[in-house]
Simulated assay, not measured.
Amino acid sequence: MNVQQLVPLALPRGRPLSCELCGGPAQLRCGACHVTYYCDVDHQKADWVSIHEKICQLLIPIRTSFPFFNSEKERKHGVEQLLHRQKHLVDFTHKVAQKFVFEGKHEEAIPAALHSLRFSIDTCGPDSVELVPAYLILAEASTGLGHLTQAEEYLSQAQWIVLKTSDCSNGIQSKLHRNLGLLYAAKGNFEESLYHLATDIYFASCAFGTHDISTSGGYFHMANVFFRQNKMDIADSLYTEVTDIWHAHFSRLIQVQSQTLTSPAEINILSEEEEISEEPLNEAQQAEASQVLNAILDIREQAPKQQPAKTANVVHALAMLHYLILDLPKAHELGMKAFLITKQLPNQDASEAINHLLKLIKSKLFYTK
């Protein structure tokens, strides 16, 4: 999109339209899609940076009036298409918002999360449990910005929906308690924070297992609370658990990837649907892993008492992460760093795995040249 298209257009007077971000009276319109409105240029720019650039053209068929249908069959098809587009945007805007949160870009996360919330309301209604993920991202972003009152309001909305939903999933309840834990930690109420984070871990373990990456976030945030309380032994054990979970997850992904590359004859001919598989790590998971592991590495490297084996484990995990996302130069740099640390240890059990990773990195670097 060029600069001219980014210039908002003045609206005709008297149109009852509201700003995409704040809901206030709209004065301006996006010059590209012509279906999105803002109260001022600042809100337009904030929305553009967060999400609007990515979904500008996708909004046109959703916000344009239905054409005249010749039959009931055509009308039903049109309604189904609209619902499909809205559900796609719910999922997409949620992932974008979640990625921003993991990257610490809380300001940018809010417009994307607001879109996710509105599309969820349009598709599921104002009291559906499907709205909870959007409320939780809005709460986490608000907590990150220090807007604790706003975060409490979003969490109250989420908590009320969860309480009214008798069959609410363990995964949703885990995320709710994690956000409550983060809010109380931001307030300095560590006892209440630890209670909610422990509850988060319980529900996440029920949903995904105790050693799943979806559960690791609870361990990480709990470790941060103990770290702030200067309870270093407990924090250390939890940081180790988080590292081990991500390390094992990356190792499995690389093993599967290696088997696929080295044993193509063993792979069955798949149907067209089965051939389409998700990324080993989606963007939100990549951002979470990077945030968590780099934070732990920073703590390990600045600790008064160094623990080289644990530091090497974090560095190795980060090297695997960068290998999986094809940032090969960084993967090689971190792999060499992990290798050099392990060479100084009396027990060099990890050296073989690190050597294997370095060979994989070098082979990919060779083929990409």
Score class of each variant (00 low, 15 high):
K187V: 02
K187Y: 15
G188E: 11
G188Y: 08
G188L: 10
G188H: 09
G188M: 09
G188W: 08
G188D: 10
N189F: 07
N189V: 07
N189S: 12
N189D: 14
N189G: 05
F190K: 13
F190M: 14
F190Y: 13
E191S: 12
E191R: 13
E191Q: 12
E191H: 12
E191W: 09
E191N: 15
S193H: 11
S193E: 03
S193G: 08
L194N: 15
L194V: 04
L194K: 15
Y195M: 10
Y195R: 13
Y195P: 03
Y195V: 07
Y195A: 10
H196E: 10
H196N: 14
L197S: 02
L197R: 04
A198W: 03
A198L: 04
A198H: 06
T199K: 13
T199I: 07
T199N: 06
D200I: 01
D200Q: 08
D200L: 01
D200T: 04
D200E: 08
Y202N: 10
Y202L: 14
Y202V: 09
Y202P: 05
Y202H: 11
Y202Q: 12
Y202S: 08
A204C: 08
A204N: 05
S205W: 01
S205H: 03
S205D: 05
S205I: 00
S205N: 05
C206R: 02
C206H: 04
C206Q: 09
C206W: 02
A207G: 03
A207N: 03
A207T: 01
F208A: 03
F208E: 00
F208V: 01
F208Q: 01
G209E: 05
G209H: 07
T210C: 13
T210N: 13
T210L: 15
H211Q: 12
H211E: 13
H211W: 05
D212W: 05
I213S: 07
I213R: 11
I213W: 09
I213N: 05
I213K: 14
S214K: 12
S214P: 09
S214Y: 11
T215M: 09
T215I: 08
S216V: 03
S216R: 02
S216M: 08
S216C: 10
S216I: 01
G217W: 05
G217Y: 07
G217F: 06
G218Y: 11
G218W: 10
Y219I: 00
Y219C: 04
Y219A: 02
F220L: 02
F220A: 01
H221D: 04
H221C: 02
M222Y: 14
M222C: 10
M222R: 10
M222I: 03
A223V: 00
A223C: 02
A223E: 00
